[in-house]
Design a protein around this nucleic acid. Structure first.
Lengths: 330, 330
DNA sequence: CTGTTAGCGCCTTCAT
DNA sequence: ATGAAGGCGCTAACAG
């Protein structure tokens, strides 16, 4: 694509390139007459400054990378939307990368993004140790972890209080009479799955309840497949996220059970569809949009104020009670 | 973030920067001994080349912009996934921009992207005329339109055969005995809404059916709100997309109607959730992932072969018959 | 095979 | 208030 450069604007306007730069950036006083000339030249040529030249010069690209598992998952789509909206308002662009939670892929993507000279990174990856990432953070790469924290890395993050979310849910379930639990959790390596696992076990033991726990992964298919193989139904099936819950519900209804009459089922996340699901899902809401927004805000603060704001932000989950759970008769 | 440059690699390896460049890019023969030296220096410094310098030099950024209404809509999320997967394989990155179908926003985003020197653009915008875009295309901006075509612009595009999709659906509906239609369509300005409107009207007249048609917009809320105000039910409510259909179904069920017993309802798109919706949605499938993939492929072909491949690609829709429609008793 | 150098487009001193 | 020139990191043409 043909792109006029500042030089051509200068020639057309009959001034030096420094003058053009000055009116473009308002970085120094320019006489009214020259300013006018420059402005018309800019307009006539349809000139748009090259940010890549600018970036090379200034060492900043005004672009942020976002590595996440899969944009197709509404949970992430909503987070991304929150982040992108904020970044756009602040003049930053967002490079989107799907990693499918694949470690190799993550490393690959990270290298690409660094080569592209991103000013900062939003990262929702596997929870496991990533030495390249650690190395780059040590060298000053600005990162905000979203929804998960990588162990052994001291960096900023935005998460919800998973422990609290789980407890809110479990307390409600216990109070409404559920005594026999199955927890179909997401990916074992994932930060949030681990925390929820711990919260779950703790509560089960404390209340002396009957339970089973399984790691699968955070998808509809995982829930469906797992549930199809279940022989007997507990009082409630607690799911690692809403997608798993959808799969579980579809499966057990196919098997002839009614939700919630025969089994209660709960989700986690409260993605937008969950309130329209039949039955509407009892779940724990994560403020997805806000998580993306806050993470972006935090990242820009770290970038622009250039401080080591190693600040974790913990947002509040909210228990959403709908109709996939019931009051158990004692 | 600290980034070693090629110069430092050269110094550390005790060679010239050209030699470093040559081994990095394998662009010319280098003796084994020097190559080794360079490779170790690269590793020790954790050197990653600066694509922005490379871009400035070569005039290519290996990045593609994607302007779309809203990533939160699963229809677009799946398209984006298809595009990003393909682009990543080919070494390109994707800058994601949500426009909310806002004309001003689109222009703003386009300018940003051009300033960022994108090699090409994937565009799913309003259907209306956008003079900035036209101007840039004339100057050689490579664009592939996705899901919609802008009138008055002769450019490449990937769409589905909306006419055919609509006819497939309507034929099925007519054959199964529906005689009285309401079409709750999406945004009036949108290419696909227009085409589907035309197909609908044509069929209604040809078959001499009773019908009403309304433009709203492509969202759950639009469908819900509209349906809540309906006084009498037709045989079938044809919806502009699946989201509208969800809203319609929720609304009319609240009003005491049964789907499909009292009214059939159909969607368009077949987003992944539609097969789990209760009742599972009869709809027209658009191959979303493939649309994204093909559009990316086409765009790269245009970019890399640098030809004026003004090629439209029309993908096939598929009628998906599920349980939100019924066989009417005559 | 290897090194030197111009220049991509821009901002920013430094003169004037 | 304005212009000239260096340099950001890199590639490619040129010289050796």
């Amino acid at each position: 694509m043909y792109r006029p450069s500042i030089k051509e604007v200068a020639k057309k306007a009959g001034v030096s390139i420094s003058t053009v730069s000055r009116v473009l950036n308002n970085s120094a006083p320019v006489s009214e007459s020259l300013r006018k000339k420059v402005e018309t030249a800019v307009k006539e040529l349809g000139y748009l400054p090259s940010n890549i030249a600018k970036s090379l010069r200034k060492g900043k690209t005004k672009t942020i990378g976002f590595i996440l598992p899969d944009i197709t998952n509404p949970f992430f789509a909503n987070i991304v939307r929150g982040a992108e909206d904020y970044l756009r308002r602040k003049g930053y662009a967002l490079i989107l990368c799907n990693s499918d939670q694949d470690k190799e892929q993550e490393i690959q993507l990270l290298e690409t993004l660094i080569s592209k000279h991103i000013d900062g990174l939003l990262f929702t990856g596997t929870g496991s140790f990533n030495s390249l990432l650690v190395e780059k953070i040590k060298k000053g790469l600005k990162v905000v972890f979203l929804d998960r924290i990588i162990e052994g890395i001291n960096s900023s993050y935005v998460v919800i209080d998973n422990m609290k979310g789980m407890n809110l849910l479990l307390d409600f379930l216990v109070k409404s009479g559920h005594r026999n639990f199955v927890f179909i959790n997401g990916n074992k390596e994932t930060f949030s799955a681990k925390i929820r696992y711990e919260a779950f076990i703790e509560k089960m033991k404390k209340e002396n309840l009957k339970y089973k726990h399984y790691f699968t992964n955070f998808s509809y298919e995982a829930g469906y497949k797992f549930a199809r193989k279940m022989k007997i139904m507990p009082d409630v099936i607690v799911c690692g996220n809403d997608l798993i819950a959808y799969g579980v519900i579809d499966a057990i209804e196919e098997m002839g059970y009614k939700v919630p009459d025969d089994v209660s089922v709960t989700g986690f996340d409260d993605i937008p569809f969950s309130k329209h699901f039949k039955p509407p899902l009892t779940t724990v809401r994560q403020p997805m949009y806000k998580m993306g927004e806050k993470a972006a805000e935090l990242l820009l603060k770290i970038i622009e104020e250039n401080k080591f704001l190693n600040k974790g932000m913990v947002l509040e989950p909210e228990l959403i009670i709908r109709n996939s759970t019931k009051e158990m008769v004692k």
